[in-house]
C-alpha cells in the first residue's frame, strides 16, 4: 500500500495496516472512526453557524422588544398559546423519537430505527399542520407582516410584531421542512439496510440537526407566545 517518499523530510509510513476498506468508508479516510469523528465535527460546526444564523433574528427580537415593549405585550395575546404549547410538546416528542432512532442505529436495531424515524417525520408533519392553521387564523384577521398588516384592535406597532413573528416562525418552519426532507432521506437509506453499529453517522448528524430545530423552538415559544 505505502511507498516511501524520497524526500529527506518525509519517510514512508503505513497508516492503515488493516488492508480492507469497507464499502461505507470514503477513499480519502483511513479508518471508519476518522470518518465518523470528521462527520460529527463537521455537523457541530454546521450547528454553530445555524446558531449564529438564528442569533440574528433573536437580536432583532431583542431590539424591537426594547423599542416596542407595549406592542409586544398587547400583540402576543393574539397568538394561539394552546397551539404553541401543543407544538412545543410535539417537537419535544419528536426529539425523543429521533434520539431513540440514533440509539437504535447504534445498537443495530433496524426495526426500531425505521419506526422511530417514521414517528419523527409524522410529528414534524403534525407541527407543520398546526402551524398552517395558526397562520391561516392570522391571515384571516389581517395580522400580516409589515406593510400588509391590516388587523384591528392592537395598540402600538403590531405590524412590527407580526413581521417578526412571521419571520422567526417562518424561518423555523423552513428548517422543519428541510428536516422532514433529510429525515426521509435517512429513512430511505435505513430501509436499504445501510446503517448499523459500524456506520451510523448520517442518522446521528440528521438527529443533531433535528434537535437544533427543537432547541430553537424551545426559545421561540416563550419569547413569542408568552410575553410578560
Amino acid at each position: 500500500m505505502s511507498t516511501s517518499s524520497h524526500a529527506p523530510a518525509a519517510h514512508g509510513h503505513d497508516a492503515h495496516g488493516h488492508g480492507e476498506h469497507p464499502k461505507f468508508l470514503a477513499h480519502h479516510f483511513y479508518t471508519p472512526e476518522q470518518q465518523l469523528t470528521s462527520a460529527k465535527l463537521g455537523m457541530w460546526l454546521f450547528l454553530a453557524q445555524e446558531i449564529l444564523f438564528f442569533g440574528g433574528v433573536f437580536m432583532a427580537y431583542i431590539a424591537l422588544r426594547f423599542f416596542y415593549p407595549g406592542t409586544f405585550l398587547a400583540a402576543h395575546e393574539h397568538l394561539n398559546k394552546l397551539a404553541g404549547a401543543a407544538n412545543t410538546i410535539i417537537l419535544l416528542t419528536s426529539s425523543l423519537t429521533m434520539a431513540l432512532a440514533v440509539r437504535a442505529a447504534q445498537v443495530g436495531n433496524k426495526k426500531s430505527l425505521i419506526n422511530n424515524l417514521i414517528w419523527t417525520i409524522l410529528f414534524a408533519c403534525a407541527f407543520m399542520v398546526i402551524k398552517y392553521f395558526e397562520y391561516s387564523a392570522k391571515f384571516e384577521h389581517g395580522y400580516l407582516p409589515g406593510k400588509y398588516y391590516h388587523g384591528h384592535g392592537i395598540e402600538g406597532a403590531p405590524h412590527v410584531f407580526f413581521g417578526l413573528y412571521f419571520t422567526m416562525t417562518g424561518l423555523h418552519g423552513l428548517h422543519v421542512l428541510i428536516g422532514i426532507g433529510v429525515l426521509a432521506w435517512v429513512l430511505i437509506r435505513a430501509s436499504k439496510d445501510e446503517f448499523g453499529p459500524q456506520f451510523y453517522a448520517p442518522v446521528e448528524n440528521v438527529g443533531l440537526y433535528w434537535h437544533l430545530v427543537d432547541l430553537i423552538w424551545i426559545f421561540l415559544f416563550p419569547l413569542l407566545y408568552l410575553v410578560r
Binding site: A63, P145, G146, K147, Y148, H159, V160, G163, F166, T167
Partner: peptide, 8 residues
C-alpha cells in the same frame, strides 16, 4: 424588509 416592510 424590502418586500414586506416589517420594520426591523
Amino acid at each position: 424588509e424590502r418586500t414586506l416592510g416589517i420594520g426591523i
